[in-house]
Design a protein around this nucleic acid. Sequence first.
DNA 1: CGCCCTCTTGAAATTGTTCAATAGAGGTGG
DNA 2: CCACCTCTATTGAACAATTTCAAGAGGGCG
Lengths: 250, 250
Amino acid sequence: MAAFDINHAGGLAPAVPREGAGASPCSACSIRNLTICAPLNDIEQTQMAAIVTNIEQPPGTPLFDEGEPADHVFNVTAGTIKVYKLLPDGRRQVTGFLFAGDFLGLANQDTYAYSAEAVTACHLCRFPRRKLEDLMTRFPKVEQRLLNIASNELAVAQEQMLLLGRKTAREKIASFLLLLAKRAQQRGQKDDSVSVPMSRTDIGDYLGLTTETVSRTFTQLKKANLIRLLPNSQVELSQRAELEDIAGGF
Amino acid sequence: MAAFDINHAGGLAPAVPREGAGASPCSACSIRNLTICAPLNDIEQTQMAAIVTNIEQPPGTPLFDEGEPADHVFNVTAGTIKVYKLLPDGRRQVTGFLFAGDFLGLANQDTYAYSAEAVTACHLCRFPRRKLEDLMTRFPKVEQRLLNIASNELAVAQEQMLLLGRKTAREKIASFLLLLAKRAQQRGQKDDSVSVPMSRTDIGDYLGLTTETVSRTFTQLKKANLIRLLPNSQVELSQRAELEDIAGGF
DNA sequence: CGCCCTCTTGAAATTGTTCAATAGAGGTGG
DNA sequence: CCACCTCTATTGAACAATTTCAAGAGGGCG
């Protein structure tokens, strides 16, 4: 999906032994420089690869549920994941969508604080939590990277609180589309048209709206010629500047 | 305010030199075990104390503003701080209230992602960011602690998104009061009546409501005999179980 | 080709907001 | 110590945004 980004293509890479069967695919990983593995050299990378399992997650399948023992952490390598929390009566708040390069499963309790489910077909790297923790004490760089990731997520969460608490439906949808565009751009995808793989319900649960309001607002933006709804869940951001104006500085 | 909690009261503490003038007050710090300094022994603590400045923050005064260079991080030792983000037109979202023991200023950009202001008179420990970072590489325990704190804040932020996106005014207020009670309890205060030092506007900006709705909802809960509004911004939680029921698992 | 699920659209209902006025609390100065 | 003044909180009524309830349209998959 994303373009390959071999970020150590110089001639100095040491000869890393490739194990037979499940040989470390990490050195060819296209999103390596986006994620937790970024600060590691090839040798360290191999140690990381030794504790990792590659898993595939069909669309709509749960990765884990809130309250389960948090035995693993994950790194998304392809696809879209949603994470959410539920109220006792079933109301749902999607707290984030995760894409290739994103890390997930951070928890300082021994149980997950939220549920995670594949939106599209996903590929992930799965790390046993315990082993990653061991590895972190050996490679403080990884811990630093994780703190960095956490700080980032915190800033994103605060931005989302601003959206949820203070923005109108129109502003929320505009912000959402721009966020998707920004994330796609980070992964090296074109940003004139955005892929919106999640359902209206998921979007509503992310933005604190109902499906109907999401739908109506899309229609409204479409009629104002700010966006175009294309086939294959693609949305063209025809008037990016105008959208940014509506979104309120995001 | 909170009870003293000297957590290393054994007989093995080494003789720590106390500098003359601004001698490390840390060893008598009542919230030490709640915060970033918790994992340090007395010697390490002294090194920490060497880079710290104690500051006092009168009510209503800004600590820093969003977008300013993030040169310092802080630790609240007394009082209440609010942190918030603004939209271009002035709408405000309070993303958190901070109390004694709370850490603030985490940012991986070089500027603050939010503004911070004293609600009540506050005392804080101020660390130069650069120096704390140096210290972290020397004491990985501190970095671990910070990652822990960040993970915690992340879980709190997700809970808040659930509140902002999916709870009714009544549920929001109930959750808010229970949160204050829980935080007060953590600091070792009684939890039958809660101190609510912030204005209705601040509460509204925290919960995604208007002042009027906050006020009306307080009145409504009061009339239902779930709370009592006492003098000095104290609120008695008369029917804790009922409130928890309304709050929806918080 | 048709069925099912999601998305869209419409109309009524509701929650929370906005605008406006009153009440109350805390602080100041006479 | 009290009166006054100002700021904050409360209350009321009209309004607006979003939700809810309901029905129809579209699209993808077997």
